Simulated scan of single mutants.
Amino acid sequence: MERRKVIIDCDPGIDDSLAIMLALKSEEIEVIGITIVCGNAPVEMGFGNAKKVLRQMGRLDVPIFVGEKRPVRREYVNALDTHGEDGLGESYLSEVDGYEQQMDAVDFMASVLKAEKVSVIALGPMTNLAVLIDRAMDAFLNIEELVSMGGTFKSHGNCSPVAEYNYWCDPDAAALVYDTMYENGKKIHMIGLDVTRKIVLTPTILEYICRLNPETGDFIRKITKFYFDFHWQWEHIIGCVINDPLTVAYFIDRNICQGFDSYVQIETQGISLGQSVVDSMNFYRKEANAKVMTEVDVLRFFRLFLSRILDVKPEELDILQDII
């Protein structure tokens, strides 16, 4: 099997951590680096959280690069109200010392992408990618495939009535990335709230995880408890939506999500700040710059996700169809 090289650009974050776990356990992917951007947590906190996840996975060999500390233009607003004051569900796991890199995230991306085509799985705001466009456009255009957890089509927003957090946090960056994709005849894969909202880690699934792999289950329980409480308080969901692992799962298995090609523009001002405006009716008569996901096979996702992170065979997970 040929492994696809990827850079994971993220803002850990609870669901980012679960996504990293899935990527590191998947033979189809070779994670050559993790780049951190301000988003769910400030970059230094995100750097620390990424190290905690790599320690849990026994993969501190994967380099982590600290990226942009603030959005391109607007004031930075973190999401610690959602992810806890330590950015990792107030699990307060012990810190991992060291592992600082000599170059920043954008320089790392530029150096890698100038040398070869590598895909980017973007799980946070697109600030690092926007700076890459300004600093090294040739490197950005050499991204083999760009898959983004962000935006929404018909589903409501999660930080405003119309906006998803990653694009709302830095709308100018997201707008630049989408516009650049359009101008160069490329498409971004948009894994938005329309599909990620259907991926809910319930108490029953969490208990199942703990039964199958107590060590991994204990780690996931620690980092998601705060997330469970937040989702109940704000959305009356018994469980928590885990957005980012779906993005990694889609990168591995394209049959997990389905959607359509469309031109997408990101709003950068006013009450619709951060909204992903999807021209599904082709009013603008512009070539598509995105593949917008609208349908997801929830069972297929959980079979892949759990079999990988728990080290069990998919056929051993037959009970899933009864508990999802």
Results as ranks from 00 to 15, higher is better:
residue 201 L to G: 08
residue 208 Y to S: 10
residue 91 S to I: 01
residue 196 T to M: 05
residue 72 V to P: 02
residue 230 F to L: 02
residue 11 D to V: 09
residue 249 A to W: 00
residue 105 A to S: 12
residue 95 E to I: 09
residue 322 D to W: 01
residue 179 D to S: 11
residue 59 R to E: 15
residue 237 I to L: 13
residue 169 C to R: 11
residue 156 H to S: 14
residue 202 T to N: 05
residue 125 P to Y: 10
residue 115 A to Y: 04
residue 255 N to P: 05
residue 207 E to V: 03
residue 289 N to E: 04
residue 51 K to A: 13
residue 197 R to D: 13
residue 244 D to T: 14
residue 105 A to G: 10
residue 49 N to D: 07
residue 19 A to T: 09
residue 281 M to D: 06
residue 115 A to Q: 11
residue 204 T to E: 15
residue 68 E to S: 14
residue 191 I to S: 05
residue 252 I to N: 01
residue 36 I to M: 11
residue 69 K to S: 13
residue 29 I to K: 09
residue 23 A to L: 09
residue 71 P to T: 06
residue 165 Y to P: 00
residue 304 L to C: 11
residue 182 Y to H: 10
residue 79 A to C: 05
residue 200 V to P: 11
residue 8 I to C: 11
residue 159 C to F: 00
residue 304 L to D: 10
residue 47 F to I: 09
residue 162 V to E: 06
residue 316 E to H: 07
residue 220 I to T: 13
residue 30 E to Q: 08
residue 185 G to I: 07
residue 15 D to G: 07
residue 280 S to E: 12
residue 98 G to Q: 03
residue 319 I to A: 09
residue 96 V to W: 03
residue 309 I to T: 10
residue 166 N to S: 14
residue 4 R to H: 04
residue 307 S to A: 12
residue 293 M to A: 09
residue 201 L to Y: 07
residue 40 N to D: 12
residue 282 N to L: 06
residue 46 G to M: 05
residue 207 E to K: 12
residue 234 W to F: 15
residue 269 Q to D: 10
residue 20 I to R: 01
residue 16 D to A: 15
residue 28 E to G: 08
residue 319 I to G: 04
residue 318 D to F: 00
residue 204 T to G: 08
residue 242 I to Y: 06
residue 218 D to V: 00
residue 126 M to V: 05
residue 91 S to W: 00
residue 113 L to I: 04
residue 172 D to E: 14
residue 58 G to R: 00
residue 313 K to D: 14
residue 251 F to E: 11
residue 185 G to W: 02
residue 51 K to I: 05
residue 178 Y to C: 12
residue 48 G to C: 04
residue 147 V to H: 04
residue 43 V to T: 15
residue 74 R to T: 06
residue 110 A to W: 04
residue 140 F to Y: 14
residue 231 H to A: 06
residue 170 D to I: 04
residue 253 D to N: 08
residue 82 T to D: 01
residue 190 M to R: 07
residue 12 P to K: 07
residue 138 D to C: 06
residue 109 M to P: 00
residue 199 I to F: 03
residue 108 F to K: 08
residue 102 Q to L: 10
residue 294 T to E: 11
residue 107 D to H: 06
residue 86 D to R: 02
residue 292 V to R: 13
residue 216 T to P: 01
residue 257 C to A: 04
residue 49 N to Y: 04
residue 31 V to M: 04
residue 145 E to Q: 12
residue 319 I to W: 01
residue 298 V to G: 02
residue 246 L to E: 06
residue 215 E to F: 02
